[in-house]
Design a protein around this nucleic acid. Structure first.
Lengths: 255, 255
DNA sequence: AAGTGGTCTAGACCACTAT
DNA sequence: TAGTGGTCTAGACCACTTT
């Protein structure tokens, strides 16, 4: 609110600052987002048209579109051709639990250490053969590791890795593939894609002992399969941790 | 590959189809994505500059930028000002488990039914008061429900809801808030945001009995707090399900 | 200095929706 | 028919990186 001398009370509108470090489209997106958050536009309400925003803020149509598009990408509004742009209700289904949070535990100087429990050649059993798309009885590498945080056991990892001298997977790459690729951010350039799944499990005796959990205990299991650029599996494995090691948080809606 | 009559072998480049239903920027993004997927550009490689793409495909700079921006948003490439655009390695940390998959179980004619087990006024205990930002001893509504899919018990839900005659939360809205808002897609216009968390738990006796799981069993617990446009909590509760009811899948990387 | 991506303009034309 | 969002142009200027 601004009180002009002797004049009427004028409701000031947030303005674009052309000298700000923040781009104009981001400023406009922030203004609209804030207005929605403040309740000036409620779920279901129609936003001012692009043409109106162009006039109101003195920016070009493309800049307005970028601002709106950002809100669309955020799921805050929906733009419908021929009708207008409307504020969304909170969509819980849009919530996503990001693995990136978990990653921080390892990247920051969080005192992560890895102890190799076992690594040996095995003959692929039926499931391993299926997951790695090899034949039953083919060689594979089986590894078991314990990953600790600040000397507390946190993750128990088991993995099966392709062993094929004709394929360009060297020992150091394996390390990357199955550990760094998961937890320390930058993956191998041999990996094209990965499939992940997560579920709650009851820790078995070995797992409970290694993770220092009193049985019966619940845990989380994160399974992974990595594929190379020929779409062939490179590795298949899973991490198991105590439930108190992996609580995922997220937020949906504004602010 | 195209064999011109008597001429040399010409490697055809994917071209833009101006008459296609798909926008030009989407076509260009798809072309580049496919080339990366095919290994024509490997992780770490630099993409052709925007100016080169403008010449190569005969489109305007803005259109090239939109195509690249889409790949950036997808996490496939990173654009660095002054240096160029580079193909990313697979970033596992970018993986996100979406709740939307779960939502489908309820929205499709999946035979979801809800049975109210209990609903009564309670005096808020310490934790409830903290979560709902009310005073200990204040009235709240406590509800318990069992949600079944195809006559199989799937989710056990407990929730505490604000009871305040001065606040515009009617009975029907409560239903929306705690159930439809979570599982059937469209939320209430009273809800501004929600906080969610997920963890593995050991089912207690009651939970195991209701969910028809033999104890000891592991389960997943999904906790939620909804906030109104005044940033005050509306409800706090949690769903518990058997582990086999909630397996989350995701994929990271190309294709 | 040359090349890169980042922003922004001031329109144009189109497809779609409402009246 | 008027209004809406969706696409696209052909530049401009800027900030940044590399040579």
């Amino acid at each position: 609110m601004t009180q002009l001398k002797g004049g009427p009370v004028v409701r000031t509108r947030p303005q674009i600052d052309r000298d700000a470090a923040q781009p104009v489209y981001a400023q406009l997106a922030a203004i609209l987002r804030q207005q929605i958050s403040d309740g000036a536009f409620r779920p279901g309400d129609q936003l001012p048209s692009e043409a109106m925003l162009v006039r109101a803020y003195g920016v070009s149509p493309m800049t307005v579109r970028r601002a709106i598009q950002r809100l669309v990408d955020e799921g805050v509004v929906s733009a419908i051709q021929g009708r207008g742009t409307f504020v969304n209700t909170v969509q819980i289904g849009a919530a996503a639990f990001e693995l990136g949070n978990l990653q921080k535990m390892f990247s920051d100087g969080a005192g992560a250490s890895v102890k190799l429990i076992e690594a040996r050649f095995v003959s692929a059993d039926e499931e391993t053969a299926r997951r790695l798309q090899i034949s039953v009885g083919d060689h594979a590498i089986y590894i078991r590791r314990l990953i600790s945080l600040r000397d507390e056991p946190a993750f128990y990892h088991r993995g099966h890795l392709i062993y094929d001298p004709t394929r360009p997977i060297v020992e150091s790459e394996l390390e990357v593939t199955v550990l760094k690729g998961v937890f320390s951010g930058t993956g191998s350039s041999l990996v094209k894609r990965a499939e992940l799944s997560m579920e709650a499990v009851l820790l078995n005796e070995d797992e409970a002992a290694l993770l220092q959990a009193p049985p019966p205990s619940a845990g989380m299991r994160l399974e992974h399969v990595f594929f190379d650029f020929d779409d062939r599996p490179i590795s298949w494995g899973w991490f198991v941790c105590r439930s108190d090691c992996l609580r995922l948080h997220t937020q949906v809606g504004l602010e």
